[in-house]
């Protein structure tokens, strides 16, 4: 069932990318989609974890949240690059607890941390994430765990 929706999505993707409707090009599209689906099935990557279709309805809310965080963090880092109002940097290397239960949650959380400038996730282990933060404030905000809570609420809550 999942491979059919996967194939349909891939074919839609092909049509959007090519923008042509000649039989020849559509035939090429069908052939490449068939090959891709065959290879993905052989590699066992069409499963709940690698093909999280059930999360797609949660994407818009998550994107709104992450864009707001990115813009806030960017403004902060830009003032520190330019040194406005005596802004300086105070680099930190800290461990924060990993509160996400699933692997997918951990990956989303670590990616969200890295996406916001000012914090980079360096090492991911089972219980903690090692973070390099540009400022003490950014490190403190991550220690409160608000981003982890937002991801749990926005992405994984039923």
């Amino acid at each position: 069932m999942k491979s059919y929706s996967f194939a349909a999505l891939l074919f839609l993707f092909w049509i959007f990318l090519s923008g042509h409707f000649d039989p020849l090009l559509l035939g090429f599209g069908v052939a490449s989609v068939a090959l891709t689906v065959f290879l993905s099935k052989r590699m066992n990557v069409i499963d709940h974890k690698s093909y999280p279709l059930h999360l797609s309805s949660k994407l818009p809310g998550f994107f709104v949240y992450i864009f707001r965080e990115i813009i806030k963090a960017n403004v902060d880092v830009i003032t520190r690059v330019l040194g406005w109002r005596g802004a300086s940097i105070s680099p930190q290397l800290i461990d924060i607890p990993l509160l996400q239960k699933t692997d997918l949650g951990a990956v989303i959380y670590a990616n969200a941390i890295t996406l916001t400038p000012g914090t980079v996730s360096i090492e991911l282990s089972k219980e903690t994430i090692t973070i390099h933060a540009l400022t003490k404030e950014a490190a403190d905000e991550l220690l409160t765990g608000s981003m982890s809570n937002e991801i749990s609420n926005r992405v994984f809550k039923q």
Partner: peptide
Amino acid sequence: IGIHRFPDFYSRLHAAGITDTL
């Protein structure tokens, strides 16, 4: 400018992050 002003590799990554995202 940020990747030239910041002192070490890890903080330069944050400056490169600006250009990658916003």
